[in-house]
Design a protein around this nucleic acid. Structure first.
Lengths: 247, 247
DNA sequence: AGGTTCAACTTGTCTTATAACATTGTGATA
DNA sequence: TATCACAATGTTATAAGACAAGTTGAACCT
């Protein structure tokens, strides 16, 4: 009886370890842009690994844009003016702490987004946000977990800032946090789930009211309270479930 | 040492070609999440390349989070929970509005980061931040613009949160905002630049003091004031310069 | 039927060899 | 002297083969 999800072996491959190590050195700025990395042979000798491992680690770093290699000349630290993408790999989120860290970053962005939205929201924005609330209500009526509708609400707030980067950031974060939300599905009874989502929805309504009122500080307080409550709920649910079932 | 002006070889390596090909297939959704990729031997036969090339291409895709491999079982398309990376292309930032939008997102993250840092900073963190301030002072003494040192200070605050995502976000934002900072160099006289950077530095000191005190709200206020002042300074400088010179 | 063992398969790592390319120094030549 | 051709050397790119470690499923036994 094997769950189709791979348990992701706790031991990192040598390739991954070496890539991690070298990547950190570069990111930390220990090697300036244009600096030549040690040759393959030197890395083989220094880290006691095979050439395969060295080359695959290099391939990883090259894919990340951290290095460029020139046949015959060597491997060089890439020019740091090329903006490296911000990326959150879901493999990183196996521990509760990591999930909370991401949620904390999300809170930072959403708290400010709500404040800006309260200042700048148009009536069209309000209508959109209101529509999201309605769709959550409908999902609740259908006894669903309303996970996507929930995210849509938060994205609508971000959109109301008029700053596309807030919206893009929330949409970027969506796929990262949604899998964690499936924990809602673990709630035993439909009534329980209903109560859970209903509580969340009441918090959403307070946020909406503050944004509509144009009350900057109130909007910030509500979002902070909402996301901290979400964090606490997540903690409790993880604690109550078997650690083996944890997402 | 040679200036790192790589002409970017027109011929892509076989590894790059294969990674490109497979990566596109996955991104286009031709293979659903969880699907098993062909085995190394099959890829070797199909594309007439060596195992080295196949494995390095796989290493690239793994680094991008597109695939996960399990020793003995095979290589699988990663579930789409690995979000598309968040990326800000410098080309987007040609208008003042765009720069301000990015700065606003940065402000959101930094304001919260300062608050968390005020709560959690260790003495080691404080020492690091303090060191950043000193390096800025030294740069000022050398009549430099202290652009990198400035960024390092902000990254140090983010690092003091203990939340690696804040630090990563700031490091991600660094290359995006640094080119805009070169406007500092446009200041006419050294004395002018000195006054500019000195003003910035006094704001940095207030942030540092608040974090050291552990005053959450004060830290937030100082960072917000600092970044809003930075925005205003940027506006004025852009306005005073010829639009053709605008970064 | 249920559990065990084992053989085949797959990825991870190591090793060696060769090709392609870059860099540098040497020396011939004008 | 200055410049170009070219060989020597070092580096990455690619190939090929071997073994280790892990997975899977089917044959086998009780």
């Amino acid at each position: 009886m094997r769950p189709p999800s791979e348990p992701l072996a706790p031991t990192l491959s040598r390739t991954a370890q070496l890539a991690e190590r070298l990547g950190r050195d570069i990111r930390d700025g220990k090697m300036r842009a244009g600096t030549r990395l040690p040759t393959e042979q030197e890395l083989i000798a220094r880290f006691r690994v095979s050439r395969t491992v060295v080359r695959e680690a290099m391939a990883s770093l090259r894919a990340e844009g951290l290095i460029v290699s020139r046949q015959g000349a060597g491997v060089f630290v890439a020019d740091d003016t090329v903006s490296r993408p911000f990326r959150i790999v879901s493999d990183e989120l196996r521990s509760l702490v990591e999930v909370e860290n991401v949620l904390q970053l999300r809170l930072a962005v959403e708290v400010e987004a709500a404040a800006i939205a309260a200042e700048r929201r148009s009536t069209a924005d309000l209508r959109l946000i209101r529509g999201c609330l309605d769709r959550i209500d409908e999902a609740i009526a259908r006894d669903e977990a309303a996970i996507k509708e929930d995210l849509a609400f938060h994205c609508a707030i971000a959109e109301a800032t008029g700053n596309p980067y807030f919206e893009r950031f929330m949409q970027f974060l969506g796929p990262v946090i949604i899998p964690r939300q499936t924990i809602r599905l673990g709630l035993e009874t439909a009534a329980e789930r209903r109560a859970y989502v209903g509580l969340v929805q009441s918090e959403h309504r307070r946020i909406y009211a503050a944004v509509r009122k144009g009350d900057r500080d109130e909007a910030q307080r509500c979002v902070r309270q909402h996301l901290e409550a979400a964090r606490d709920r997540y903690r409790r649910l993880v604690a109550s479930q078997s650690p083996f079932e944890e997402g």
